[in-house]
Write a protein that binds this DNA or RNA. Structure first.
Lengths: 158, 158
DNA sequence: TATTGTTATACTCTATAACTATA
DNA sequence: TATAGTTATAGAGTATAACAATA
């Protein structure tokens, strides 16, 4: 089903500011998903600039706080991070005094992850800031119902 | 508003297969967006395995096809790719015989980008394959209306 | 034998600076 | 002076292999 127009006049082409035709590209779900995700992550980074906190680091802190004493492998796996790469991430959080690696008594191969007192305090501040960011994002979406709708749709893509 | 339950019995905790509490993490829009985007891109890579085509390369081919003769900078900018990094990308497509860099007559600094005959044929096949992937994705979302809903919501996040 | 944490390594993606040739 | 393409380079993120200690 292709359309053809017999006209010499200037018609309303779907063009961007650059004058390029981008419909084919921007019509793809993956493309739009990528742009939106990049935008949201950039906003996170800007919002958490003074915290020097990346999205993955924030997720790790939240996950340890909700699951104290878990092994590195367990936390890493939930987030889809290879355990080899998780070593560097958790090492950085430990160097900042936010996380402790406690040798496990039951399994001496494993490190039990805990937040330090400083880590707990830091996360509390970060979470309240994150709530503000999340509120702003929900507002842009059009409210809690729109947020729920988006999350439901995203889940179908996994 | 916190809830408390006076019970010793096992209650239905929102836990994953791993037994970890992940509600706080997975409630974040950015987190869910990232997971969905990674999943969609991984499906793209698997689907285009025999084409040896990455999402960015596909977008470039489509954009050149819809806008023949444009400069590298123009195509790169639309996709949010730095012109320095775009050099390698377009070089790879040129080496594969899909794209031509034609020195511009009007501006001898610039390269006008065109698809070769092979590039046009390759893209036609890739686009029909992409349409199949997109159809599958739309089906998973729940149909064209759900797709439109998702794209509208994603646009509000940019 | 298998798993945990670790190191080493490599590949992709992204970002900046600086160069050249043109405009 | 500014722009187009390029090179070099550095930083993230991600992937695999292999090792020591332990299960």
């Amino acid at each position: 089903m292709s359309q053809s127009f017999d006209t010499d006049t200037t018609i309303d082409l779907p063009e961007t500011d650059s004058g390029l035709r981008t419909e084919t590209t921007t019509g793809a779900i993956g493309y739009r998903l990528r742009r939106a995700q990049l935008s949201v992550f950039q906003k996170f980074l800007a919002f958490f600039d003074e915290f020097k906190l990346r999205p993955a680091e924030y997720s790790v802190l939240v996950l340890i706080d909700d699951n104290p004493g878990r092994k590195q492998t367990e936390i890493a796996e939930v987030l889809g991070i290879k355990r080899a790469n998780f070593v560097t991430l958790v090492h950085g959080l430990e160097e900042r005094g936010l996380v402790e690696r406690v040798p496990s008594a039951q399994d001496r191969r494993a490190n039990a992850l805990h937040l330090t007192a400083a880590g707990t305090a830091f996360l509390a501040t970060a979470q309240s800031r994150h709530a503000a960011l999340e509120d702003e994002t929900v507002a842009r979406l059009g409210g809690p119902a729109a947020r729920a709708q988006l999350l439901a749709l995203l889940d179908r893509l996994i």
